[in-house]
């Protein structure tokens, strides 16, 4: 994960001009509700999802939930 986190740290919130912070964030899909740690803007709450995560783990969980 360390490489992915490095990539995370390249990004700041453009509106608030602040560093992102790793925070617990709620994610939902179909009947699934989870809490995961993601990078978000502490001021406006926008959450960063990088491509690797969206196309990797997230897609996998989506597919899993769809076939339940």
């Amino acid at each position: 994960m360390s490489k992915g986190e490095d990539k995370n740290h390249q990004w700041i919130c453009d509106k608030c001009k602040v560093q992102l912070k790793l925070k617990k964030v709620k994610v939902k899909y179909l009947e699934g509700n989870f809490e995961v740690e993601l990078m978000k803007c502490p001021s406006c709450n926008i959450v960063l999802i990088l491509e690797d995560l969206a196309r990797g783990k997230m897609l996998e969980v989506e597919k899993g939930l769809e076939d339940k």
Binding site: K26, V27, K28, Y29, K40, I49, E51, R55, E62
Partner: peptide, 12 residues
């Protein structure tokens, strides 16, 4: 780059 996901991330 472009990508998407179906999972909803709650921004609050």
């Amino acid at each position: 780059s472009v990508y998407s996901h179906r999972m909803e991330v709650v921004e609050e």
